[in-house]
Design a protein around this nucleic acid. Structure first.
Lengths: 199, 199
DNA sequence: TCCATACGAAACGGTATCGTATCGGGCAGG
DNA sequence: CCTGCCCGATACGATACCGTTTCGTATGGA
C-alpha cells in the first residue's frame, strides 16, 4: 500500500520535504519533548506547509513515531553465539548504543507521548519493545534448556534484572548510562544468572 | 513562614477548598497525565474558582508536586537493622508499596512534568530521589565497611541493580511490579551483592 | 459588630494550536 | 503540451488555557 507505483500521475512526493519534516520533528522531540511537539512548530522549523504534513501523517503521534524510528535500525541484531551471557551482553550494549544521547531523549519523549496517545504507545510496543522482548524471552528459555542458568533462577526475574538498569535512568531525565557503568551492572547481574565455565 | 498565626485577620483559608483542589489535581494527574493537567480543569473538577488556585499555588507544576506529595509520607522509614540486605529489602518494598497503583501513575506523570518544568524536576529530586538515594549510598558504604558485600562489588552498580527493577516498569506505562515479582528480582540481585551467613 | 480576607463565579484580552480550505506555482508521466 | 498531483503560503473559525480582574457573598477574629 506504501510506495504504490501504479498511482503515478502528477508531481511526485518531495523527498526533501519528507526528510526535513522528520528531522525537524526529531529535533523538537529531543529539544522540547513530546508536549511541545506541534504540527505548526514542525512546519515552521522544517520550512514546509502544514498541509504537507497533514497530507502524509495523521497527527503528531504518527509523526513522532516515524521521526524516532527513522533513526533506528528496525531489525536489531539479535545475536546468536553459543553463550547466552554473551548474546545478552551484546544485545544490551547494542540497545544502549542506539539510545545513548539524543535518541534516548527522543525515546523518552515518545514514551511520555504514549501516556496520552494509545496509538503512540502501541507503536512503541510493536516496533521496539515486542521484538526485543520476544527475542530475550526465547533466548532465555533456550539458555534454561541448555542448562546455562544457575539453579533457582526465574527467567522473568532474570530478564527484569538484566534490562532494567538500561532503561530506568530515562525516567529521571538522564540519558542511558555510560558503557562502563552499564557493563558493571551487567556483570553483577550475570554473575547470579548464568552458569560460568571454570576459568 | 507557613501557617503564620500573627497574620490572622479576616476569613481564614478554606481547608475544604485546599483538599478538593489537591484531590482533583491528583485524580487528573493519574487519569490524564501531566499534559492534561490544567488549572481550569482542576478548578472545574474541584468545584472551586481559578482564583483560589492561583492564590495559593504558583502554577500547575507547583500544584502537581503538592498533590503528589500530599499522598506520600515525606519522611520514609529508612530502616536500620543489623543486615544491609534486610534494610534494602524493606526500604525497596516500602517504596513499592507507596508507588503501587494510582500513586505510581501520578509519580510517572510527575516525572514527565519534570521534563518540561525544571521546578517540578527539582522538587521531585529534592523531595523524593535525594533523601532515598542519600540513605542508600550511606547504607551501602557502611555495608562495604562492615564486610557485608561480596568481593568485587561496586556500590554504584549494586545500587543501580537493586533499584532499577522497581522504577523501570513506569517507563512503559505499567505500574510498579507485584510484590512477588519484585521479590524475585531482589533476591536474585542480593545473591550477587551481599555476603550471606551460612545457613 | 466590623472589617479584612477568602470564597466561587464570571468575564477579560491574549496566545497557541488545531484541522480545513484555498491559492498560485512547479514538476513529471503520458 | 497537458493533466494530475504535489508544493509552500496563508487565511480561516474553533477550541482550550492562560493569568488577571472584578463582583457580590461568606466567614470568623478583634
Amino acid at each position: 500500500m506504501e510506495n504504490n507505483p501504479r498511482k503515478a500521475a502528477g508531481r511526485p512526493r518531495s523527498e526533501e520535504a519528507r526528510e526535513a519534516i522528520l528531522v525537524a520533528a526529531l529535533a523538537i522531540l529531543v529539544r522540547e519533548g513530546y508536549e511541545n511537539l506541534s504540527i505548526e512548530g514542525v512546519a515552521r522549523e522544517a520550512g514546509t506547509g502544514k498541509s504537507t504534513i497533514y497530507r502524509w501523517w495523521g497527527g503528531r503521534g504518527d509523526l513522532a513515531v516515524d521521526a524516532f524510528f527513522a533513526t533506528i535500525d528496525e531489525t536489531p541484531d539479535l545475536p546468536e553465539t553459543g553463550s547466552a551471557e554473551e548474546d545478552f551482553r551484546t544485545q544490551i550494549n547494542g540497545m544502549a548504543r542506539d539510545l545513548r544521547g539524543p535518541p534516548g531523549r527522543a525515546f523518552a519523549a515518545l514514551l511520555m507521548g504514549g501516556r496520552e496517545s494509545p496509538t503512540v504507545s502501541a507503536a512503541v510496543r510493536k516496533r521496539w519493545l515486542d521484538p526485543r522482548r520476544d527475542w530475550a524471552r526465547m533466548r532465555m528459555a533456550r539458555a534454561a534448556e541448555a542448562g546455562e542458568l544457575l539453579p533457582g533462577v526465574e527467567p522473568r526475574a532474570a530478564l527484569a534484572l538484566l534490562y532494567s538498569p538500561l532503561y530506568s535512568p530515562l525516567l529521571f531525565g538522564n540519558t542511558i548510562p555510560p558503557a562502563q557503568d552499564l557493563s558493571a551492572c551487567f556483570d553483577l547481574a550475570a554473575r547470579t544468572i548464568f552458569r560460568r565455565e571454570k576459568a
